[in-house]
Design a protein around this nucleic acid. Sequence first.
DNA 1: CAAATCAATTGATATATGTCAACCCGTCGG
DNA 2: CCGACGGGTTGACATATATCAATTGATTTG
Lengths: 232, 232
Amino acid sequence: MPDSEYRDIRKLDLFAQMADGNFTSLMRGAYVQNFPAQIELITEGEPSDFLHIVISGSVDLFSTWNGRETSMATVRPISTFILAATIKDAPYLMSARTLEKSRIALIPSQDVRAIFDADGNFARAIVTELAQCYRSVIKAQKDLKLRTSLERLANYLLRQQRHAGGGAAFELDFEKRRLASVLGMTPENLSRAFKGLQPYGVTVTGTRITIDSQADLERFARPNPLIDDFST
Amino acid sequence: MPDSEYRDIRKLDLFAQMADGNFTSLMRGAYVQNFPAQIELITEGEPSDFLHIVISGSVDLFSTWNGRETSMATVRPISTFILAATIKDAPYLMSARTLEKSRIALIPSQDVRAIFDADGNFARAIVTELAQCYRSVIKAQKDLKLRTSLERLANYLLRQQRHAGGGAAFELDFEKRRLASVLGMTPENLSRAFKGLQPYGVTVTGTRITIDSQADLERFARPNPLIDDFST
DNA sequence: CAAATCAATTGATATATGTCAACCCGTCGG
DNA sequence: CCGACGGGTTGACATATATCAATTGATTTG
């Protein structure tokens, strides 16, 4: 692993405070690999042998049941995924596939659990990380249960806008079919939902979104920090 | 606090492994209180001043947005709730109200965070608890996004049946209007959903459910451990 | 360049779910 | 005992969402 990557991983909240020796020994057992796009990295139900870290590219977490499939989240650099399964030594609840060419670090789960038992700072960092993940999923669930698909899209656009810097125009960061799945609707419906937001000043050209009337859209979307703020 | 309650709390996974002194000092700052039914214990958005433990009774965790309300989970003795908010020192994402007369222990959040910093065993127990909570919510989200309301009800009944001991007949453990909210539908729709399960051998008399044909219902519901097993 | 894909869109239609109003039927308190 | 109340149910209807089929438009591939 190149030194720059090693340092980037070390800087993650999850690893920043742990003892040097422990971090080194975690990394000794790790290996890093490049994957092409659309590769299934893990499959739900399998034992969680590795903690994964996305170094570059992006990864889709999704689930299937009875022939249906839904996208649960997208992981972007630099962050880890399936930490909970690793810690509990339980099967993955979600599958993961690369969305594009991606570089992934794999740390054997048993090493993570061993160091977790030995390093209090690491254990505390894991707590913070898991609490964050938990709260994110709760927010997603509130979004799903309390809002219609049109409201979910409107709020998604506002979040994405803020994430992109706050300007009136910005780019969607993934293809619409997957956005539809993340928002819990069909691609056809997403298409109609975009039209449904035109009266609130939203225009779409390909992947480019323009919010002509911020106030109108917000009045309709009613964003709420207890659902839409990622930071808290 | 009576000795028996003290010992029951000590036996919780969360507290079982921590040092005696730390547990004692946690409990010293705690207080226990009896609440009548339908009391709002906490309100979403407020700072998380206390970690709550349900000693007896039951508590509904719910959320609201834009005049709508949805039930997120039910907490039954003996377990804690809003651990994540306590740890992160962040606002509650959900409100809580007693469903019946309940006895609740309250531990100041700052005490929890202090002991969490000092006691490695406690920190590790919190990790396990949070990982469990996280996985539960992921399962709930898969349930919501991958299944229709009829399928959710069918699988809920199978889970409840197993929880009640596996017999063909069992009781719903809360009122239907709240079950509807938990399952993400209206009470009217739940009523129709019960009728929709009649062809699969489900009969309902008040709160009593009878599954006449286990095989038929399971063939329809297609329960899946990665969604319906609470243990993993 | 032409053919083949594939994501995105659109229209027509079906299904699922929510809403509203009415009603039923227990429980509870006067 | 009566009447009010509240949860549950039912029917009629409206709305939301999914499905299916067809088309467009951009991109890839031989």
